[in-house]
Amino acid sequence: MTGPVWPRPGPTPPDPAMPPVPDPSRASRSSAKIVVAGGFGVGKTTFVGAVSEITPLRTEALMTEASTDVDDLGSTPDKETTTVAMDFGRVSLGDELILYLFGTPGQHRFWFMWDDLMRGAIGVVVLVDTRRLGDCFAAVDFVEDRGLNYIVAVNCFDGIARHGVQDVREALSIDPDVPVVLTDARQRESVKQTLIELVEHVLRQRRQPVGSPG
């Protein structure tokens, strides 16, 4: 499988000449994305909103219940479709680059859509509320399973970290390389710092060849 093909079945290989067509006059524009994951009510929307230049926008992602393999609803007209809300914010980094932040839908049964969301992402911030640590297990499972770059950010509700970073690290039993940081989802500076930690982490991973010791 080399890429999305429609209609299916049918030999319609993706045409390498397809867009994106770089427009010479605007070729310098580009975008990137970071995904914010975590359990219900952990502060994802607050986190996105703290740094976004727009009020987080809510979009409906419509999908079939069954699977991602169903490309053509026309062939299965009775298939249930459902919507999930996902919100996103925007941060302009200079004139040429726009960073989008996407808050994932928390419901487990929608996580099959994450692969699509994660494609091309810089990495993932897994937000954690230490009062309900278990709520983030599924998000950590997901990013680890997919081998995504991520950091864990403990959202200090009311400015208090009820458990230390080390406790969280142990409870999640995550790789020692994965940063665990404290954040305050309501504070722009704090959110900014958390995003910086993520990108620095990803850069470290990328510069260190896979499989090399240390």
Partner: peptide
């Protein structure tokens, strides 16, 4: 998806952050 004649994919799948 009536707007897309039932299709849930395009020949070219754009990332959601694509400008």
């Amino acid at each position: 998806y009536a707007r897309t004649r039932g299709r849930t994919r395009s020949d070219y799948d754009l990332p959601i952050e694509a400008l």
